[in-house]
Design a protein around this nucleic acid. Sequence first.
DNA 1: CTGAAAGCGCTTACAG
DNA 2: CTGAAAGCGCTTACAG
Lengths: 353, 353
Amino acid sequence: MASITEVARLAGVSIATASRVVSLADYPVSPATRARVLDAARTLDYVPNALARGLLKSQIPVVGVIVHDITDPYFAEVVRGVEDAASPAGYLVITCSSERDAVQETSYVRLLRSMRAASVIFAASGLDDPGQTRELHKHLAAMRLDGAAVVHLSPHALGDADVGVDNEAGMASMVAELVRLGHRQIAFLAGPSALVVAHARLAGFRRGLADAGLGVDERLVVHTSFDRDGGALGVDALLTGSATFTSICCANDPLAMGALARLAELGIDVPGAVSVAGFDDVPVAAMTSPALSTVRLPLREMGRRGFVEAARVLDGGELERIVLPTELAMRGSTAPPAIEAIAGRGVSLGAGR
Amino acid sequence: MASITEVARLAGVSIATASRVVSLADYPVSPATRARVLDAARTLDYVPNALARGLLKSQIPVVGVIVHDITDPYFAEVVRGVEDAASPAGYLVITCSSERDAVQETSYVRLLRSMRAASVIFAASGLDDPGQTRELHKHLAAMRLDGAAVVHLSPHALGDADVGVDNEAGMASMVAELVRLGHRQIAFLAGPSALVVAHARLAGFRRGLADAGLGVDERLVVHTSFDRDGGALGVDALLTGSATFTSICCANDPLAMGALARLAELGIDVPGAVSVAGFDDVPVAAMTSPALSTVRLPLREMGRRGFVEAARVLDGGELERIVLPTELAMRGSTAPPAIEAIAGRGVSLGAGR
DNA sequence: CTGAAAGCGCTTACAG
DNA sequence: CTGAAAGCGCTTACAG
């Protein structure tokens, strides 16, 4: 590949001058010289070496996004948002599926640091485990010191999201809506108790109930994994428990979809016998049957704004903490409760009910 | 950030020696010296500068994956596969959502070239438009010359996939299965006629019919976009057309899901009145209702093998052309045909049928 | 086993 | 407006 040296030689100028024109530097160069350099660059199919430039700046126009799993539509949306904002600015996006594993996450961040990525954006909520993450934070601190932008899109062990939503308020609004529909016995599939974002949503559930003057029946709060399997298992746990309920509120959409699938298997009608609500509004939420009522998060916008904030920091500005609005997306999986609540313990599962 | 110079100074050795130990070079260094260097590196929180190393090698351990859209589960799966193979090898994955736009694709590849990415993997099929892509191929040729690995996971304007599936055979096997179920009037939602991979699947449809001794009713072959909207539009086109059919075979899953949704809207029972089949087996295909019968592509494995082939080339080997097997995944959306075929023209849409 | 030195391809004071 | 030179942080012949 042609280097700037060859471009300069072909154009008959110094490499300094060649650099000034090809790098679009704001520096006076005579029009004739400029034209000759541009010509030479075109002739030689010159493409600047971003590594050399990056070495000088100690930074390369690349942003790493840490996600739980890129095949999870939540994260795919966020990453796409980052890309939509980053791409016009000439930044490339590196996806890092950490599976919420601290070791993997650290290894990714170290790699990002080694290549002097301009920014790392955490799309996934961290686990509430500060001990595990000392090395991670060492890397992040070093990167920040070096001018890199670190942006969180979810609450994490060390603080709130930089660009995010009010998870607690969003969940409380869903609870309020279920109460408005007439529900009084609302179960909650809470996800993993160690996940920071799950905390916030559980807090929202409690607040929603409190706002309605209702108490929390702790037997109806179930912790599971944050995926479909957790939703199915959660339903089983509720049905074998001792408390009755007319609706199930879930801390995210996968949980709700798993619950929907398990209830269908058991022949329990949604929303006839029980209402189900999710949280996130991933694109598939509108395609389940019945379609899932959920809390819409502006996922793509979160990604976009995440990059915008990163760019602000790279420009020497301060991170602005941003809270984006959530919105209820009520669909077919919720309705006023049936006369009788779904019973817990004592009801045999799978018996065609 | 500490550089190797500082590590060398702290360890009391030359930077050459320091480099040999921190870069894990296969070069004799006395154990005592090695230990001192490692110690210094740890003390200084030394992380090697990948940009400096890359500048020397004219290559950085990064692989770019060109996809249509990372929020499309097909591509998310493939990217995850690439990441699963790339990550243990110390490579980072850059996602490029090109929206099948030649200009964007070229711009991404140029950026990848400028940062001397070790490899670019095309997950998306190209458009059959060699004119549009001259500049793209100039960049790719330059990268290849420079030792980068270019791998195609789908057929493209200039040739077959390097790591892919036999789209034609896969589609033919689905047609054979529909015929086995008793279908004789099979419609085909073909996707865009300019998309190379769509060609192959249409060819498979024709071959499957020919193998069964059936002719192709061209009135039942509909070209639309490659997404849900195309599926819905395709159904409308078929219903207002003049030919009858008992099943709809789709060139990919989004088309099939769009068809399913539209048929449900129209009150047409699947698979009672008409069978619907997809192609790809993206994860959501199992979650529609009825669950979608489709042709399973080993998407994640395609991504993984794509990186493995890239690594082979980077190691100085030759690209091995690999064809991965497809598999039928028959689910609830297909069944033997009803006595009467669905009629086209003359049936009023949306009239509760 | 160790080190001095060249060089990868750029940008940017500095001098003219 | 133009150019010579230093230097970013590494690796790697080459010499010892």
